[in-house]
Design a protein around this nucleic acid. Structure first.
Length: 764
RNA sequence: UCGGGGAUCGUCUAAUGGCAGGACGUCAGACUCUGGAUCUGACUAUCAAGGUUCGAAUCCUUGUCCCCGAACCA
């Protein structure tokens, strides 16, 4: 893997490696819950986590997140392992299980209780919900929150002992019922579940919640980068809380893992949620989890998609934090791109029409002749060929003959000559029509046209064919997109209403060339001019071949059906509608001034006395610290507009308290500093305090470089980039910024950019 | 008492104050014993407005839109 692509997660890992954050270790994990089949969205995550492990020469743990016995099953454990290995990744043959850590998690929970960090709560689930408050209202503490530690400990042990029924009580973290992040309002750590677990059997009747089990599992294994999807952003604070207060990583001699969230894969014309996929299976809209129309790994495998194609898609779509919906065409591209290079070409006719070559001898063998046809076209450059028998009676595709050809039709029609792929050219003689339908076409072959074009005759195209006497029959299953609309989950009503009505078409009398008789189930082929197909791994038998269409060939414009996908206005989702409106920072500042006369007075003064704009005055009077800073600086002699500019454009505005004094600020704005140098000094003064003159002097920024020095740097930069200079002189004036940047960089920030620009313009 | 994220060609994704680039797609052409593949060319973007700066996709402000969070699910 020479040019490994990067992304923001790999950037973080690189940084951590550089700084030695995890002692140079990298360890990822893929943590599915065994409650469903893996789908293409999981594939992206698998490629990410296992891909990183490969790239850094480490391991990715497959860990089943099996903390909810009522939903989980070994059937899923097995399918998940199979799918990961099929995708081409290795987890060392042994999967890990969160349930293996139940005892340690339990002990750590007792520790939390002993530290006063957790308590047993006897509120009912309705009460817990009620006490939790809402998005815009704080919660109230549970009456059990401050019960004695000993009581909680005894009760927790009783929970474990099995003496308590489901729902009697739960273990909760004691964090903050008023936290703005609802995940931190005393979240549940353990609940009672008298249920049989697929691995631990009946050993436990209490089970840890995800938010507790997950960080602990990561830490126990020594995971360094715990990569998950965006919806867990709110959980990160709790993830860190659990690590901090159990100190579990430290107990295992590891650094604490870091949770990083990325955007899950969404594909248009597809649904991806486990619940909806389960509905499709259970309600019989598809033939099972491995139905070739399903976006499951098992479905795509049966459809004939290769692991390489799926990995290529993951590579193609990249990793970022933007919610996105990937064009399903990208998947199709990856599939075709892979198959073009790997699938041998053979011939097969889906909807047969009899073609009689009258110039051939009559009889069963029909003056048989055999062509040696290569499996791959020259551009693919792979070896191999097979014999293709030819005879008097052939099958051709019904679509490849037209009595009245439409414009641009490059196939057989009255008066025309076409090439039989790998064989002769044939010229139309006659068509037999019965009941308005063409039932037979008669042609004469041109003997000298094997490997050569006929003299003086136009060849209207190339069509595929199969010798009728030698053909083998096959069932062909043509799959289309499962959903007819780009976003099946968006439309109101049930998503199954958006199913494509004929997403599976079964053709029974297809005719294949005889070489396919020995093809292996699961093998992939291109039926030339028709598409890519795979012998169905389940239903295809020797003598009774079943082909699944993996994909059509890419079709050029004239043949392609115009598919209009009108962009319906998206409807806001139901949850978004219930969310309370937020107030803006501007509203908060206005409220602060209404509350605080001093702020209101400053707001007024800054505008009327010091001449600041209303906008700046507003920003500077939202809180005391800022108002005092600007007014203090002005009192110390600072120009009001300059001081205001620096405060208002401060990247840390409102994020951190000022370390500088108003006098520092006043001294700063009086300094003859500009450009990056000024920013550097301001940032340091703001963060650490101190006299800006000293800061500037210490950094050597108190004096701008003189023209002589700058002039030399300009000459150096011009000499170092002759190609850019040529482009600039050729009219690419945008490059001026590039040159200025180079010179300023070379001067370590001392050159004055406006002066550099002048000098550059003179000399370019 | 609301909090956390996000917005760059039609789509996905780069550019971490200095040339808005790549891929998919679309269109046009070349080539072709697959209407495939390949090749060439074209197309199209920084959510909006203000500000800072020699220079802004990137920094600041305001606004708009989207996603996530109130399971004893993960």
């Amino acid at each position: 893997m020479a040019d490994e692509r990067s992304d923001f997660i790999r950037d973080i890992i690189e940084d951590d490696l550089r700084t030695g954050k995890h002692g140079g270790r990298v360890l990822t994990r893929f943590p599915p819950e065994p409650n469903g089949y893996l789908h293409i969205g999981h594939a992206k995550s698998i490629c990410l986590n296992f891909g990183i492990a490969q790239q850094y020469g480490t391991r990715c743990n497959l860990r089943f997140d099996d903390t909810n016995p009522v939903k989980e099953d070994t059937e899923y454990v097995e399918s998940i392992q199979r799918d990961i290995e099929w995708l081409g990744f290795s987890f060392g043959g042994t999967a890990l299980y969160a349930s293996d850590y139940f005892e340690e998690m339990y002990q750590l929970a007792e520790g939390l209780i002993a530290d006063g960090k957790a308590y047993v709560c006897e509120l009912t689930d309705e009460q817990i919900k009620e006490y939790r408050g809402t998005l815009s209202e704080p919660g109230r503490p549970s009456p059990w929150r401050d019960r004695p530690i000993e009581d909680s400990l005894a009760l927790f042990r009783k929970m474990r002992s099995g003496a308590l029924p489901d729902g009697a009580c739960v273990l909760r973290a004691k964090i903050d019922m008023a936290a703005a992040n609802m995940k931190m309002r005393d979240p549940l750590l353990y609940r009672i579940r008298h249920a049989h677990h697929h691995r631990t059997g009946d050993a436990w009747c209490i089970y840890p919640m995800y938010d507790y089990a997950h960080p602990l599992s990561d830490a126990i294994e020594g995971i360094t980068h715990s990569i998950c999807t965006l919806e867990f952003e709110n959980n990160r604070e709790l993830y860190d809380w659990a690590l901090e207060h159990t100190r579990v990583a430290e107990k295992h001699g590891f650094t604490r893992p870091q949770q990083i969230e990325f955007a899950r894969l969404n594909l248009d014309y597809t649904v991806m949620s486990k619940r909806k996929l389960l509905t499709l299976v259970k309600d019989g809209h598809v033939r099972g989890w491995d139905d070739p129309r399903m976006p499951t790994i098992a479905g795509m495998r049966r459809r004939g998609y290769s692991p390489e194609a799926i990995r290529a898609l993951a590579e193609l779509v990249g990793v970022a934090k933007t919610n996105s919906v990937v064009d399903i065409g990208k998947l199709e591209f990856c599939v075709r791109d892979d198959l073009n290079r790997t699938a041998p070409r053979v011939m097969g006719v889906l909807r047969p029409l009899k073609l009689v070559v009258t110039s051939y001898e009559a009889g069963a063998a029909g003056g048989a002749q055999t062509f040696d046809a290569p499996y791959f076209p020259p551009d693919v450059g792979k070896p191999g060929s097979r014999p293709v028998p030819m005879s008097r009676e052939l099958w051709i595709e019904r679509d490849d003959f037209a009595l009245e050809p439409p414009e641009g039709y490059q196939r057989l029609a009255p008066g025309r000559t076409v090439r039989l792929r790998h064989g002769h050219c044939v010229t139309f003689e006659d068509a037999v029509v019965e009941g308005g339908e063409v039932v037979e076409v008669r042609v004469r072959h041109l003997p000298e046209t094997l490997g050569a074009n006929p003299q003086g005759v136009k060849v209207s195209g190339v069509i595929h064919w199969v010798s009728a006497a030698h053909a083998i029959d096959a069932e062909v299953r043509l799959y289309d997109r499962l959903f007819a609309v780009p976003r099946p989950e968006d439309a109101e009503g049930d998503f199954v209403q958006n199913l494509t009505p004929g997403s599976l078409e079964v053709i029974r009398g297809a005719k294949l060339e005889p070489s396919l008789a020995t093809a292996a189930p699961g093998s992939r082929w291109q039926l030339e001019r028709v598409g890519y197909f795979v012998l169905d791994a389940v239903d295809s038998q020797p003598g009774a071949i079943v082909l699944n269409r993996i994909s059509t060939l890419r079709e050029a414009a004239p043949a392609r059906a115009v598919e209009a996908a009108p962009a319906e206005p998206r409807e806001k989702n139901a949850k978004a509608k219930t969310r309370p409106a937020k107030r803006s920072p501007a509203e908060y500042r206005a409220e602060a001034r209404a509350r605080d006369e001093a702020l209101a007075a400053a707001f007024d003064r800054l505008q009327r006395v010091h001449g600041l704009s209303e906008g700046d005055a507003d920003l500077l009077t939202g809180e005391r610290a800022v108002a005092e800073m600007i007014e203090g600086a002005i009192a110390a002699g600072a120009a009001p507009d300059a001081a205001a500019r620096w405060l208002v454009n401060d990247p840390s505005f409102g994020k951190a308290p000022y370390a500088m004094t108003p006098a520092n600020l006043a001294a700063f704005v009086a300094l003859p500093l500009a450009g990056p140098a000024a920013k550097e000094v301001f940032a340091k003064m703001r963060a650490e305090g101190g006299d800006p003159r000293q800061i500037a002097a210490a950094a050597g920024l108190d004096q701008a470089a003189d023209d002589g020095v700058v002039g030399k740097l300009v000459d150096d930069v011009i000499a170092a980039h002759p190609d850019k200079v040529a482009q600039y002189r050729g009219g690419k004036v945008g490059l001026l910024g590039f040159f200025v940047g180079q010179v300023v960089k070379a001067s370590a920030g001392k050159a004055s950019p406006p002066r550099v620009q002048e000098l550059l313009k003179e000399r370019l």
